[in-house]
């Protein structure tokens, strides 16, 4: 029947196009992390991207020097680390081991950050429960 035939071809073409779109999105996602680079991504890329970039990961334990300005710390994804220096006040969520996204200019390995955002994971629990879990060693979440 002509009408059914035509409707089927439209749905078919539509689905084909949508599948193509989804495929392109997946390829794009592999290509680069749109919102931020992980430290190991930087190592992987042959030429270090110059200009403004964003780096995301955890603040390495013991690397946070809050005293003077600029504040210095290292971001790690447990595979590679990037040294960051930041002039400005840190959000009160920032502690060692905390997820963070820093954006600024990468100058031969050092990130001159002008913006540091805390990346909060999806766990919500009272302090005592967190401490209890950590004492039990079943979980090493942020401090």
């Amino acid at each position: 029947m002509k009408a059914k035939h035509r409707r089927l071809t439209f749905v078919g073409v539509g689905l084909l196009l949508l599948a193509g779109a989804a495929g392109l999105v997946l390829v794009a996602l592999e290509d680069t992390v749109v919102f931020f680079f992980a430290p190991s991504d930087l190592q992987a890329q042959e030429r270090a991207p110059e200009g403004r970039i964003r780096i995301g990961g955890l603040i390495e334990q013991g690397s946070l020097e809050r005293g003077g300005t600029p504040i210095r710390f290292r971001i790690t994804d447990l595979k590679a680390t990037v040294q960051v220096s930041y002039r400005g006040l840190l959000p009160d969520l920032i502690r060692e081991g905390q997820g963070v996204v820093a954006s600024g200019l990468l100058v031969d390995g050092l990130l001159e950050a002008d913006e540091v955002l805390a990346k909060h994971d999806e766990n919500y629990m009272p302090k005592e429960v967190a401490d209890a879990l950590r004492r039990a060693g079943t979980w090493q979440g942020g401090s």
């Binding site: 539509g14 196009l17 949508l18 392109l24 999105v25 794009a28 996602l29 290509d31 991207p49």
Partner: peptide, 21 residues
């Protein structure tokens, strides 16, 4: 150019999506 090919891929995906819908 620092963003690589991702944005162009996303635009192409949006074009296909717009053509479908």
């Amino acid at each position: 150019p620092a963003n690589g090919a991702a944005p162009v891929l996303f635009l192409a995906a949006m074009l296909l999506g717009a053509l479908a819908l």
